[in-house]
Computed example of a mutant assay.
Amino acid sequence: MTVTQISNAATEDTVTDRALAACDDLQAPNSTRLSTQTRKGTYTTNNGNVTQHADDGAGDVATTAEVRNRCREWVFENVATESEATTLARRDRGNNNGGGRGNNGGNNGGQASAAPSDAATSAPAGEAGQPAGEAGQPAGEASQPAEEEQNNGGGDQNNGGNNGGGDQNGGGDQGNGGDQGEEQPDPAPTATTPPPGAGLGILTNSCETSDLEAHDGFQRGNRCVSTEFGEVGAAANNPTLLITRAPRVVNRNAPFTLQVSTRNLIRDRFLAAGQGGYYVESSVLQGGLVRGHFHTACRILDSQNQAPAPDPVPAFFVATEDSRGGAQPDTVAIQVPGLPQSGTFQCSSWAGDGSHRTPMMERANQTPAFDSVRIRVR
Rank of each mutant, 00 (worst) to 15 (best):
Q275F: 11
N8C: 00
H293W: 06
Q130K: 08
N176I: 04
A191N: 09
N251M: 11
T44F: 13
N163K: 12
G221T: 14
S113V: 13
Q366K: 03
N151S: 03
V232C: 13
V284F: 01
G48Q: 12
A9P: 14
G338D: 08
G171S: 08
D302E: 14
D268T: 14
T204M: 08
E12L: 13
G140I: 14
D56N: 13
I6Q: 13
E281H: 12
T192C: 03
Y279N: 06
N222S: 10
Q130T: 12
Q328N: 06
V332K: 04
T190R: 07
E134I: 14
V280P: 00
E213S: 14
P368W: 06
A119T: 13
D156T: 15
N104G: 12
T32S: 14
R363M: 04
A364P: 08
G155C: 13
A236G: 04
T36K: 08
F294G: 11
A273R: 14
S7F: 12
Q144H: 01
A364Q: 08
G277Q: 00
E82I: 05
C23P: 07
S206R: 08
N8G: 00
P195E: 12
S282Q: 10
L20M: 13
A89L: 03
N163T: 07
S355A: 15
E84Q: 13
T344Q: 09
Q286Y: 09
Q180R: 06
N103H: 14
Q27R: 13
N78Y: 13
Q27L: 07
A120G: 05
G199S: 00
S117P: 10
S372T: 15
A9N: 09
Q111N: 04
L339G: 06
G136K: 12
D92G: 00
D92W: 15
A9C: 07
